[in-house]
Computed example of a mutant assay.
Amino acid sequence: MRRKLVAGNWKMHGNHKANADLLAAIVAARPFGCDVAVCVPFPYLSETAVTLTGTDVRWGAQDCSAHEQGAYTGEVSIGMLAEFGCRHVIVGHSERRQYHHESDQLVADKAKAALARGVTPIVCVGETLAERDTGQTEVVVKRQLSAVIHTLGHCAGEMVVAYEPVWAIGTGRTATPEQAQAVHALLRAQLQAATAHAADMKILYGGSVKPDNAATLFAQPDIDGGLIGGASLKAADFVAICRAAA
């Protein structure tokens, strides 16, 4: 069986006091029986690393540059993240695709850069409400994932994939377990056609996961944990979701 992974995406939230309290509560609640990570804003990587070093809770970032170094003002390279001990980096989150106009190929290039430095990319794919309502879910998610598979080549099996229906992020709406499983199964089949490691790869669900729906979602055969947004900022909720994954 694949070991579940629950990764918190703090997005653009946090301050020194809130972060310290949240991380202390997560550490105190261990062990969880699943893999746990928090992906925090860049300025808080240092304090997060200090707090979590020596524990089994991993930390990561929410984005990275596709470039190793150079005249890219405001960008953060994967080499910099690796120096802070990041184990994961989120690439292709729907908010990056929407607000920063990131293309499928740019997302793929970021994933490749991450793997080259030993950091596991959490590659996000997902459709908007309009795309779902017009029956384009399969086309959209397969196109997004295809670009990454093609770019990573034989390394494709080393990434984590996260399905995040855009219409279920921060809206209070959640895909039913059956809807989520259908897309996860589709993605698994696509991976199976590309890599011999597909059966061992984690595919996370990210779309308004909460303590009251986590266990049902995580019970689906192809859902291997969650990429958690708002609920990852509340210690009690995040801990409950981690326990549901176990």
Rank of each mutant, 00 (worst) to 15 (best):
T176E: 03
P177D: 10
P177K: 13
P177M: 11
P177C: 09
E178P: 01
E178Q: 14
E178Y: 01
E178R: 09
Q179R: 05
Q179V: 07
A180Y: 03
A180G: 11
A180P: 13
A180C: 10
Q181R: 06
Q181M: 04
Q181W: 11
A182C: 08
A182Q: 15
A182K: 13
V183I: 15
V183Q: 08
H184K: 13
H184Y: 13
A185K: 14
A185D: 08
A185L: 12
L186Q: 12
L186K: 06
R188W: 06
R188K: 14
R188N: 07
A189W: 03
A189C: 11
Q190D: 08
L191R: 04
L191M: 15
L191N: 12
Q192P: 00
Q192M: 12
A193E: 13
A193Y: 00
A194R: 03
T195M: 05
T195K: 05
A196Q: 12
A196L: 08
A196Y: 01
A198F: 03
D200W: 00
D200I: 00
M201L: 07
M201V: 01
M201E: 02
K202F: 00
L204C: 03
Y205Q: 06
Y205W: 06
G206M: 04
G206P: 06
G207A: 11
G207H: 03
S208E: 04
S208T: 02
S208D: 13
V209T: 15
V209C: 14
V209R: 05
V209E: 06
V209D: 05
P211G: 09
P211M: 11
P211Q: 10
P211H: 08
P211C: 10
P211K: 10
P211R: 11
D212L: 02
D212K: 04
D212H: 13
N213L: 10
A214Y: 10
A214H: 07
A214N: 09
A215Q: 14
A215N: 07
A215R: 15
T216S: 14
T216E: 15
T216H: 09
F218R: 01
F218K: 01
F218T: 02
A219W: 00
A219F: 00
A219R: 01
A219M: 01
A219N: 05
Q220M: 14
P221W: 02
P221V: 05
P221C: 04
P221N: 07
D222R: 00
D222G: 02
D222Y: 06
D222N: 14
D222W: 06
I223G: 00
I223K: 00
D224H: 15
G225Q: 12
G225Y: 04
G225M: 07
G226Y: 12
G226K: 08
G226C: 09
G226I: 11
